[in-house]
Design a protein around this nucleic acid. Structure first.
Length: 863
RNA sequence: GCCCGGGUGGCGAAAUGGGUAUACGUAGUCGACUUAAAAUCGACAGCCCCCGUGGGGGGCAUGCGGGUUCGAAUCCCGCCCCGGGCACCA
């Protein structure tokens, strides 16, 4: 017998070449279009589509940001996604599984600043490297739909969407505070400012500057973004993160009036029940009225200094809730609308301009922050809620609400020292009553507030999609007409930002004609946040080569929403929220007819080395290319899925990789030897009826043949179930068990049985190790495994006519006996009592209870 | 501080609805093949104790302490540790 050597370096390129040559993983839109109206259905399970009718499935991994080479996290993400894509195909789906690149962004631009290499060139080089490696991993991608967000043919439509949002009032300009380096004369991204507030490049103290910025009105969608989370199959932790980010709070808006200036100041509060305990009023340093209020008072200078200082603090400093409260009086008072009291006004940095109205009523008795401020400034603290007497019943307040007698008390209780109408009332009832009263008096109303802020999308950067807006001296802000899109990014020499976007220096490009009046106009020089590019790419894949529209609605109807989205949990908030927002906005504009882009989401865990995140500085980076070169892509992919549950972090171990490599080698060698023995050489297509042949074996099977058949069907059942719950690690373990059984019985079982078992192993392992399994399937059957339906487990072979009954005494296993599968409870009890070691433990004692779990165990309770 | 994950052999892990804890893989030990090694193949293997040639028996083990149950890694209560997210959001 010849010696067989498993050689992935020979096997893998051979199959990759075939898939490329035959465009195996490409799907057209037309075929599906004919089936439209059949109703889409998720692959609920093998045989979910009786009659084998094709259904559509869109399997998508988050598109990579092409920088350098793919890392191990990419390998994990695409190994998971490809396994799902293959599984869906074999269940009968037409699978859309595309690839693209999130190709605009800061790293390429910073690289350009350092080296002068155009971002387009470095990005293109990186994309080439990603393409090469994805092909070398054998990922089943429909390359005909490939895209990069930096191509004009793509960002033309990014710009079109921006203008659609603009025309709908969802994109707008507003002054906003940005980080500004006075020495470099440039706007800085938050990441470019160090913890102490210095410019990363020159070390100068960074200032805050108000500049006109572009925003997208995502806050209009807060309620829908929150509510629609209930209808999608996402991990609970991701939903929770989005809910927290949206941060819905119910409460009331209440108006406090400054009589001296005759100005009303509304505040938002979640606790209108504590209104009678408001003893002062605080405004954020950014509040536009602060200087006007302090003007002419003895505090004017102090307020000026305080505000200046506060505005120049870093987010880290401002955000630290632990540090002592600071602030200064404004020298004015406002009227508390519920009792007419004049309460003093302050400015303090613990109040945020971005939330609510930028001003708060302070209730020091029932809010920890207000309490701390009142203590620091010697302000009155008035208790208006009395905690329930004692925690002597089940309704004890949560520990977080504080101890009953102490202040601040944030729990529930009974209103006191408020007003005869409300005193004695439970605070939750009083809350509604007070809001109703405010409403009647015109002094307030119920209100909902969100933590979510509008999305700042303009960047003073070069390597992004230009914002397609013109500024005409006569007509003002003018959108670039659709027929003039894309607004192409001009080539420039100097990428360093100088006060404005680097694009501002391209005078020829900036100066243009107004499409409305023909007069001179200037282009917007800011570019878009790269998150805009990635907020709609999944739509473009459905119709990637359309040059007349962003997509044909029919194409979206065929594929959207994405059936299974896969990516890192680090995108739980921003990308996934923005993509949902775009989808809803586009639905409102009539461009799509669904509300959620991603029906199901899977978030994969991180891959670490020696327990630490891989990083160049730590020198613990494992490069996928080196692994593939050493042991092949099948091993790399299987290992990353075998090492543990894919949603959890996994630590890379070279020993583990070798183990999986040995396993694939054993499988391939045994298959090759078996093929040789069976005289079924490669490419000589085997005769019809192979599967029936195996079944014929099943009918008559006994002994080792039956054992091997049973193991095979057990594995089919196990892997099918495991794939549905993303338990790839146990699926692979099940195929390992099957192979171990094959090895054990290789000489005692019939050749046909062995061939059937190995064919099944290859079929089941194919979603994880496509090359070697294609090779094995061809060796044993002369057929293409990816064209075969997913195997079905025979019910009859999943059950055995005997099993091992566990015999327990007082819950401890004392013996095991072989019993017939159809034995009744009484028989089982008898057999258990008769077991030798059970008798030893029962002897001389009284059996008080007998528990029977048919198919599993009998437990005798003795005294 | 708040909200999520997680804690099981030397290591990665499994146990899918309360029912045989430790599947599978690693590293390890022993054996076969070999002049030798690697590779490959086969066997053993949670910890402790007892009897014994083979083999068998008992006790203890799923972060810690309680509880529910015939029976708990799994459910409940109270803690400890590790990782992640949010964090002055009124």
């Amino acid at each position: 017998m010849p010696e067989y050597r498993y050689d992935p370096q020979e096997i893998e390129p051979r199959w990759q070449a075939l898939w490329a040559r035959e465009h195996t993983w490409e799907v057209s839109n037309e075929a599906g279009a004919q089936e439209r109206g059949e109703g889409r259905s998720a692959p609920g399970g093998a045989g979910a589509q009786p009659g084998g009718r094709a259904f559509n499935s869109y399997v998508l991994e988050m598109l990579p940001y092409p920088s350098g080479e793919p890392h191990i996290g990419h390998l994990k993400c695409y190994s998971v996604g490809d396994a799902i894509a293959h599984f869906h195909r074999r269940l009968g789906a037409r699978v859309l599984h595309p690839m693209g690149y999130d190709a605009f962004g800061l790293p390429a631009e910073n690289h350009a600043i350092k080296t002068g290499v155009h971002p387009r060139d470095s990005t293109q080089a990186s994309i080439a490297s990603f393409q090469r490696q994805f092909r070398s991993w054998g990922i089943s991608i429909d390359w005909s739909r490939e895209l990069a967000t930096c191509e004009p043919s793509y960002y033309r439509w990014t710009q079109w969407i921006f203008l659609e949002l603009f025309r709908a009032g969802l994109a707008y300009r507003k002054e906003a505070a940005v980080k500004w380096c006075p020495k470099d004369q440039t706007v800085l991204a938050n990441e470019q400012v160090d913890a102490e507030g210095h410019c990363e490049r020159c070390g100068a103290l960074v200032e805050v500057k108000q500049l006109e910025q572009w925003f997208l009105r995502i806050t209009d969608y807060a309620e829908r973004l929150l509510g629609d989370l209930d209808g999608i199959e996402w991990p609970e932790n991701v939903k929770t993160m989005q809910r927290n980010w949206i941060g819905r709070s119910e409460g009331a808006e209440v108006t406090f009036r400054c009589e001296e200036l005759g100005v009303d100041y509304p505040v938002f509060t979640t606790r209108p029940d504590t209104l009678f305990g408001a003893t002062f009023f605080v405004m954020a340093p950014e509040h536009p009225d602060v200087m006007r209020l302090a003007g002419g008072t003895e505090h004017e200078q102090a307020v000026h200094d305080y505000v200046n200082h506060a505005l120049n603090e870093t987010n880290e400093e401002r955000g630290n809730a632990e540090r002592p409260k600071t602030g200064v009086p404004l020298g004015r008072t406002v009227t508390n609308p519920v009792n007419g009291e004049q309460i003093p006004m302050y400015v303090a940095d613990y109040v945020l301009m971005e939330y609510g109205t930028g001003a708060i009523m302070a209730v020091p008795a029932h809010d920890e922050r207000d309490h701390a401020f009142a203590r620091a400034f010697g302000l009155p603290i008035r208790r208006v809620i009395e905690a329930p007497a004692e925690n002597d019943d089940l309704d004890e307040p949560p520990a977080a609400a504080g101890v009953a007698g102490e202040l601040p008390y944030t729990g529930d209780g009974v209103l006191v020292s408020s007003n005869p109408d409300f005193d004695g009332m439970n605070n939750r009832q009083a809350l509604s009553a007070i809001v109703a009263w405010l409403d009647r008096e015109g002094k307030g109303h119920a209100s909902v507030n969100y933590r979510l802020r509008d999305w700042l999308v303009s960047r003073q950067r070069y390597w992004g999609a230009p914002i397609p807006i013109l500024y005409c001296e006569r007509c003002g802000m003018v959108p670039v007409p659709d027929d003039q899109l894309p607004v192409e990014l001009p080539d420039i020499e100097d990428y360093t930002p100088k006060g404005r976007s680097p694009l501002a220096a391209a005078e020829d490009w900036v100066n243009t004609k107004c499409p409305e009046c023909g007069g001179s106009a200037r282009r917007e020089t800011d570019t878009m946040d790269t998150f805009v590019d990635s907020s709609w790419y999944f739509l473009r894949y459905c119709d990637a080569r359309n040059d007349r529209a962003a997509w044909d609605p029919a194409a979206l109807r065929e594929w959207m929403p994405v059936d299974q989205y896969i990516g890192g949990v680090e995108h739980a908030i921003l990308h996934l929220m923005y993509a949902r927002f775009f989808t809803k906005a586009l639905a409102d504009l009539g461009h799509v007819d669904f509300q959620e882009p991603f029906q199901a989401l899977f978030t994969q865990g991180m891959v670490t080395k020696d327990g630490a995140k891989m990083s160049k500085s730590k020198g613990n980076v494992v490069s996928p290319a080196s692994i593939v070169e050493r042991v092949g892509a099948d091993t790399a992919r299987c290992y990353i899925l075998f090492v543990g549950p894919p949603d959890q972090d996994a630590d890379w171990s070279d020993d583990g990789v070798d183990g999986v490599h040995r396993f694939l080698g054993r499988l391939w060698r045994l298959a090759a030897e078996t093929a040789e023995r069976a005289g079924s050489p490669r490419a000589a297509a085997s005769p019809e009826g192979e599967a029936e042949g195996a079944l014929a074996v099943a009918d008559a099977a006994e002994g080792d043949d039956l054992a091997l058949l049973r193991k095979t069907h057990w594995a089919i059942d196990k892997v099918s179930g495991d794939l549905r719950r993303f338990a790839f690690n146990t699926a692979i373990a099940a195929v390992m068990e099957l192979l171990n059984e094959c090895s054990r019985l290789r000489d005692s079982a019939q050749l046909e049985t062995l061939r059937f078992a190995l064919t099944s192993a290859a079929s089941l392992l194919f979603p994880f190790a496509p090359h070697v399994c294609s090779d094995i399937y061809e060796l044993l059957r002369g057929e293409r495994v990816w064209e075969q339906p997913w195997p079905q487990a025979e019910e009859a072979l999943l059950e055995s006519e005997v099993y091992e009954l566990v015999c327990q005494v007082n819950g401890k296993v004392r013996d095991r006996v072989q019993v017939s599968a159809d034995a009744g409870p009484e028989t089982l009890k008898d057999l258990c009592r008769a077991a030798p070691n059970v008798r030893a433990h029962v002897d001389g004692k009284e059996i008080v209870k007998e528990i029977v779990v048919p198919g599993k165990l009998v437990n005798l309770v003795v005294r």
